[in-house]
Amino acid sequence: MQSIDLRGVTCPTNFVMAKLELEDIEAGTTVEFLLDDGEPVKNVPRSLKDEGHKLLGLQEKDGYYVLTLEKGAE
């Protein structure tokens, strides 16, 4: 699974980067994003849901979070 590391990137740059990465990925593909705690883990999943992607899960790792999602159709 493709993993996109957005740690150390603040809002809204992290969301825009996620959006750009998703442009090159086929609909239906599952990817994961690494997100910092705080604002990023609160804002980025919600914004990606708004863009039409399917959120699958969130897991806490060592001081950060892994968001899994399936890219939505255009």
Binding site: K42, P45, L55, L56, G57, L58, Y65
Partner: peptide, 12 residues
């Protein structure tokens, strides 16, 4: 509910 845990994390 698919037990993703996003709501619990979102709830500040």
């Amino acid at each position: 509910c698919i037990s993703c845990g996003l709501c619990a994390k979102s709830c500040t």
